[in-house]
Design a binder for these strands. Structure first.
Lengths: 124, 124
DNA sequence: CCGTATCCTTCTGGATACTG
DNA sequence: CAGTATCCAGAAGGATACGG
């Protein structure tokens, strides 16, 4: 995605999509929705995320008030991440979308297959 | 966004976000939700989209069965794009998300401001 | 009018190495 | 353990030119 332009501010939903549309934010939030979790624990369970992107993603979410960060007074220091009420309210609103995906994934797959054969197949 | 990896298929909502999370798909769908529209008309109203990205985006949406393409038998040839019922059902499901964005954009902005001062400010 | 093809810049994000 | 810094490959996307 390129840098956001002026037009984007016109649509509030764009702000949300910019926040959760990337590869990892949603996955991290879903994981944290199950309960608080520490950095490396998240890293293990998310599978495939690089240390850098987990760090970047968590910072982003924390900045937007969707995730909170707590340094536990232990030695060695542990850091626990928790989904905030705001974060919970967001993933709740994502539920209809998930249901749509489940309900219509068959239709989309079929549309794709039909499109691919129609475009690839030169037989008119 | 990087190329999708194996893990992504585990989450149906990822498929949806990959479809509407990019910069233009949503804007195009919102525009088409108002009614059928031709290529250059879309291009004018979307403002900022390049000819290439409009073409790519429309093809993507058409492939997924969210938009249909009709070549009108006029001279010069005109092409009309229409949001399918499937496409309509998807943007309907986006409404709760839009409402969330509107309702909480203040909270997010405040969280951001607080975060920025806290991180930037070396006091403590 | 409606696109596709090519080029080239910009941005994303993984790998790696190093701090508190 | 929990990150940050640097480097670099690859993908996204705008500009431009050309075809149906």
């Amino acid at each position: 995605m390129p840098a956001r332009r002026a037009i984007d501010h016109a649509c509030p939903i764009r702000d949300v999509l910019d926040r959760i549309g990337d590869a990892w934010s949603l996955l991290v939030m879903i994981e944290l929705a199950k309960g608080p979790c520490r950095f490396n624990a998240l890293r293990r369970v998310i599978d495939g995320i690089s240390q850098r992107m987990l760090s970047v993603t968590l910072r982003h979410l924390e900045r937007d008030g969707l995730v909170s960060r707590a340094v536990l007074p232990t030695a060695p220091p542990q850091v626990e991440y928790t989904l905030t009420p705001l974060g919970h309210s967001l993933i709740d609103r994502l539920e209809p979308l998930r249901q749509w995906a489940v309900a219509h994934q068959g239709a989309v797959r079929r549309a794709r297959a039909e499109f691919d054969t129609r475009v690839m197949d030169p037989a008119t």
